Computed example of a mutant assay.
Amino acid sequence: MGVGAVFQPWLQRWQLSADGDGLATPGSDLLPVRLPNGTAAMLKIARDHDERAGAALMQWWNGVGAARVFELEGDALLMERAQGRRSLMAMALQGQDDAASRIACDVVAHLHVRREAPWPRDMVPLQHWFEALRTAAARDGGMFASALAVADDLLATAEPARPLHGDIHHDNVLDFGERGWLAIDAKYIVGDRGYDYANLLCNPELRTVTEPARFSRQVDVIAAASGLSPERLLRWTLAYAGLSAAWFLEDGDTASADSDLTVASLAGAALGWQSQPA
């Protein structure tokens, strides 16, 4: 089993042993490892600022609602590794959609609990992320403009800001066995908690996400589990779906953008829009 050179200094520094093959993502390199005492862990080497900032937030959560961080230095993050066999994605597709949503909401609630420790440095206000939607609205109008109008109103009437995960979906909440369900791969934003719950209704990797009946049911489930009013959840969903579609178009992924725009339309319809507002 070969181990990439990027991991070698950290394997030696923290006395780790490789426990599988490495994996490269757009923003990081990952390697399953074991600590000297045999504990399963994941070594993650960030390749961009977003990944480094997200790692600092994971450390700040201190294992409450998120994977525990064992070490964090420079570009390298060493965190506990999920060993359970359950999957929220599988649950959502195999008749346990409501349960999967409630589990994810419970994890989000733990992440949002107020903590005495100061926030990590370099956290970005949520409104800055919506600049991508502002650009898309100016260029394309339509649903992007509608989503932006809703986003601006939500940001102007936001709940007190708190650190947000920023990318809650069915594959970022994993089964950690005795430790329960925990989040991984945080972003680095602060803002209204509604943003994190809207993510659950927009995941284009979940093939049922654009089904109207499924959407309506999950709005009720997530609103009840989160304590958000259905209307505010729908508005955050519309705003986030527009933003996500704008990001996907920037990446050339029109299929995922279309999925998000369909979700935005479902949210608009549920809010009582008879047709797309000008």
Rank of each mutant, 00 (worst) to 15 (best):
T208F: 02
D29G: 10
A132M: 12
Q8G: 06
A136L: 08
R214H: 11
R86A: 15
V3L: 06
L77Y: 05
L206T: 09
D140W: 04
N199C: 12
A100S: 14
G20M: 00
H169G: 12
V150D: 07
P9E: 14
L35G: 11
Q96Y: 03
T237R: 06
Q59L: 15
A149P: 03
L35M: 15
V6K: 12
W61N: 08
A145K: 08
C202E: 07
L16N: 01
M79R: 12
L148S: 04
M79W: 05
W14E: 13
S244E: 07
W14Q: 09
A24K: 13
A213D: 14
A41F: 02
R139M: 10
R217T: 06
S275N: 07
V219E: 05
A76N: 02
S226E: 02
L57N: 05
D19N: 13
S259M: 09
G242P: 05
G74P: 13
I222W: 02
G54D: 13
L30C: 15
I184S: 02
A66P: 10
Q276H: 04
N172T: 00
G95E: 08
L155H: 04
L182K: 10
A92C: 09
R68F: 06
M58L: 15
D50T: 13
D106G: 12
D97A: 11
G2S: 15
P160W: 00
L78Q: 02
S17F: 04
A264G: 13
E51C: 11
D185I: 12
V263S: 00
R162V: 15
L93Y: 03
D175Q: 08
A264M: 03
L11C: 00
N199K: 08
Q94T: 15
D171W: 06
L72S: 00
R232D: 01
P36I: 09
D29H: 14
A137D: 10
H165Y: 04
E116L: 12
G252C: 00
D98H: 09
G74F: 07
E80D: 11
A138Q: 12
A40E: 14
L133F: 00
G252F: 05
R179Q: 13
L77M: 14
L233C: 00
A46D: 00
L200D: 09
A213T: 11
V219Y: 03
E71Y: 04
G54H: 02
W119S: 10
A278N: 08
P163L: 05
Q8P: 04
D167Q: 05
P26S: 05
L154W: 05
D98A: 15
W129R: 15
L11Y: 01
A198Q: 09
V190Q: 04
P125T: 01
P163M: 02
A82W: 03
D260L: 12
A138V: 07
D50E: 15
G252N: 01
D48Y: 05
L148C: 06
D75M: 13
Y195Q: 06
A246W: 01
A161K: 05
A147I: 00
A255C: 05
G272I: 03
G194T: 11
G84A: 10
A267Y: 04
D196S: 10
A90P: 03
A183P: 06
P163Y: 04
C105A: 15
D153H: 09
L93E: 14
D48T: 13
A76Y: 01
C105W: 08
D152A: 08
L261T: 07
Y195L: 02
Y240C: 07
G252L: 11
M79F: 07
E116N: 12
L200S: 06
W273H: 06
